[in-house]
Write a protein that binds this DNA or RNA. Structure first.
Lengths: 263, 263
DNA sequence: TAAATGTTGTTGCTAAAATAACAACAAGGT
DNA sequence: ACCTTGTTGTTATTTTAGCAACAACATTTA
């Protein structure tokens, strides 16, 4: 490679993920620093071989990132970055939309496929995905939702998901501290911090105190949120009787401990 | 390739432009039609070689498109399409944003670089880019804006850009027909259809009657909008005295023809 | 219980496709 | 005669795809 000399590599990677090749990225960047450059000048400022510059410029014009003059020799000019990125994103969003609708179609054809006995335990990665599953759990609950959850996690992510839960569902929340009024909607039990954290782990280590939680819906679906220090969070989700019963017992003993009027 | 048998190719291309490889797309699609498939089942439904399925699944998990069970053998499940696409788009938008800000920084460093004499003639592709340039023209005008423009182009694209033009700038518009009230803001001259279209071209051919226009600001900047039949529109823009004077003369004679109280 | 068989997950190597890099040259302009 | 632009064809390099072989288990069969 001739000239990513002063160009940060992750900028090029970002542009690649917007659908450009390395050459296209280099040429566009080079073009942004000049005005009305000839192909040869583009070659010089971008470090891309002169012969390669022509097809690359053609593609960039096609992608609405550069404009061409009608002079001879041709002169090239970059569309301003804001506009250019927007042009790229428009294409990508179109693709995303058409992919999404095609995939939804396929997805609906999936037979519900009752996977009888032995329910597996799923690992879910990424905050978004965990929240989506948690929201499903809450919405699907018919009688009762129970949770043991660190306060920051509760206020940052969980409370917002509890809005749509119907009145008929009893919601018990155990958390470490609670300041302010008791929301009439749920039953919140404060709980001395540290007591319920990491039954198996020593407190001082890498696992963060915050961002973990245990959720149970109707005694049939359980989710364990594990916010592994700074990294992408992950969660276990299961409808298997094994894990559900474990969680059931765990919650029950905590409930007794904090003196909640349990089930 | 073993099995893009019933999978539309442009779906795969769309997914590729969202950052997936062909294999990743095939596996994700295959996974959408099953529930809790083992790696071997994934291999069967996707047509991807069994040995390749493992690294591909790893990457998909990393990209938050699939979740894994903790059973042995591992079972895989697709994140629903809507959620999945959203997860992909989030990454891309992050890249877009960081690229945009990095590029803006570079862009600002560009020396204005007075390219003295001989102004070139630019070709601009894409509706968005043309509109942006046109808007610049209007906003930069200090005394007068004149245009000869097909009615559909006028109402679809141009009128909206004229809003911010200050009162002190005189705006003359020549178009083919005009129904309804005369906007007090501009001077609109109706003009028998066909008479001003394509001076060099016979009317019956491929060039569409609609979607062309000529714009002149302050006698120094000219833009010619060419809406080539159904395709991506393009435009010429210039500040060169040559093109500007051509446009000036052209507009003047049309003005006289329609009996406008010209300059 | 031991042998045969099967499946899962891994590793390493080869093939094909997409990108990148270069050499050479025709056409024009000076 | 010389230089620059724009084009073409050919050869690396990198990324992606495809395959074969195998260790680790688990299941069946004798």
């Amino acid at each position: 490679m001739t000239a990513p000399r002063d160009i940060p590599n992750d900028l090029i990677e970002s542009l690649k993920s917007l659908g450009l090749t390395r050459y296209e990225a280099l040429v566009y960047i080079g073009l942004l620093r000049t005005t009305g450059a000839t192909a040869t000048e583009v070659h010089e400022t971008s470090g891309v071989p002169r012969a390669s510059v022509y097809p690359v410029l053609d593609r960039l014009v096609q992608k609405e990132l550069v404009s061409v003059s009608h002079t001879t020799p041709k002169r090239f000019d970059a569309v301003p970055p804001g506009q250019g990125i927007e042009n790229l994103m428009r294409r990508i969003e179109d693709d995303a939309e058409s992919a999404r609708s095609a995939l939804e179609r396929l997805y609906r054809e999936k037979r519900p496929e009752a996977r009888g006995n032995q329910e597996p335990i799923w690992t879910i990665y990424g905050e978004e995905n965990i929240r989506a599953r948690l929201s499903d759990m809450f919405l699907g609950a018919e009688r009762r939702v129970e949770m043991l959850v660190a306060r920051d996690l509760l206020v940052e992510h969980v409370l917002a998901l509890l809005g749509p839960v119907p009145e008929s569902v009893q919601v018990d929340i155990i958390t470490d501290t609670w300041e302010g009024e008791q929301p009439s909607r749920f039953r919140i039990h404060a709980h001395p911090p540290g007591a319920h954290q990491k039954p198996h782990t020593s407190p001082g280590k890498g696992l963060r105190y915050e961002s973990s939680g245990i959720f149970l819906a109707d005694d049939v679906r359980a989710l364990i949120w594990m916010g592994s220090s700074g990294e992408q969070p992950s969660a276990l989700y299961s409808e298997s009787t094994g894990l559900v019963q474990f969680v059931r017992r765990y919650l029950t003993s905590i409930m007794e401990w904090v003196g909640a009027t349990g089930q």
